[in-house]
């Protein structure tokens, strides 16, 4: 893609900055990164948002006297009240508890997907970047194929015929989206493998596995972590879109997207039923993206660009 030209032109920090910042005590990279992350306001807000939502989603159902699948036709389709904080759906199920339940799944799916996709992308990307040749050609071909396939279309095709569990949804999204992480890792590994410290390790007789594990992965881990947060954000959106189209998890189980799908018919009379789960999805993605940004800035303060 010619990305190298961009990074090359921009990789030199400004002379002025050097001039001003000399004389500070040297610190390890990890320490500095942690310090930068801590002072990154958005990242802290993101962490706070994320964990308060985790807390709310898992504790919320416990403090409510309703079950997520408890049907009560008499109280159906109500607006928010002191009895039912978020109102009830067409079957009289309590929407607060259902939103919490949906939030649990959305968060779980996003975290699991992010980790799986990043792991898959990390392994395949580093192998491709390190060995080049046939392996690289193969992985690059796979990446290109995935690029041309619309993830949502494939999820829909499968969703129509097969019943999805949260885990299968997470697995499918990971399989469809690992290539993003792989592209980043592959490019980085190709850069790093010609660097002195890797050449030195190779000259000292280190095995390929040892070089990848000991020298290359630690150097790409940060970028991969950033990529994982981005993938987690994408996963929530994809999952909720799938559920919104009615192809999510099996009822009475629910996710935030399913709640929106169930509510869109009554959007004219009771828009809050759409606004609450939609707002929650947005907040989760926002939190995850804040954390990802903080990580990126902490790990690479000179680089604001991101492909």
């Amino acid at each position: 893609m010619g990305e190298s030209a961009v990074t090359e032109a921009n990789s030199r920090p400004q002379a002025m900055v050097e001039d001003v910042a000399f004389g500070d005590k040297p610190q390890s990279f990890g320490r500095q990164a942690w310090k930068r992350f801590r002072s990154h306001k958005l990242a802290i807000i993101g962490i706070f948002m994320f964990f308060s939502m985790v807390l709310m989603f898992w504790i919320g159902p416990a403090i409510s006297s309703y079950e997520f699948d408890e049907i009560n036709i008499v109280d159906r389709a109500q607006g928010p009240s002191s009895e039912h904080w978020f109102g009830t759906d067409d079957l009289g199920r309590d929407l607060f508890v259902r939103a919490m339940r949906g939030g649990q799944f959305s968060i779980t799916i996003s975290v699991v997907t992010g980790l799986m996709a990043a792991a898959l992308g990390g392994v395949l990307g580093s192998i491709a970047g390190y060995f080049s040749g046939t392996v690289d050609t193969g992985v690059t071909f796979l990446i290109n194929c995935l690029l041309t396939i619309n993830s949502l279309a494939i999820l829909l095709v499968l969703g129509v015929k097969f019943q999805m569990t949260p885990l299968t949804i997470a697995g499918l999204i990971a399989i469809l989206s690992w290539y993003r992480g792989a592209r980043v890792v592959r490019a980085l590994v190709m850069q790093f493998k010609e660097r002195e410290f890797v050449l030195a390790a190779r000259a000292a007789g280190a095995s390929n596995l040892r070089i990848i594990k000991g020298h290359l992965l630690p150097n790409v881990a940060g970028s991969l972590l950033v990529e994982a947060t981005l993938l987690a954000g994408t996963a929530i959106i994809l999952e909720s879109t799938l559920s919104f189209l009615g192809l999510g998890v099996l009822p009475p189980e629910t996710t935030l997207g399913t709640l929106i799908n169930e509510a869109k018919g009554s959007i004219d009379t009771n828009p809050t039923r759409v606004l609450i789960p939609g707002g929650l999805v947005t907040l989760i993605v926002l939190a995850v993206n804040f954390v990802g940004d903080g990580l990126r800035d902490a790990l690479d303060p000179t680089h604001e660009l991101e492909q």
């Binding site: 959007i267 939609g278 999805v281």
Partner: peptide, 16 residues
Amino acid sequence: LGLAMPTFFFGLLLQV
């Protein structure tokens, strides 16, 4: 905000 909001949710918001 634009990146965090699912497309369908933004569409529904506009409709509402």
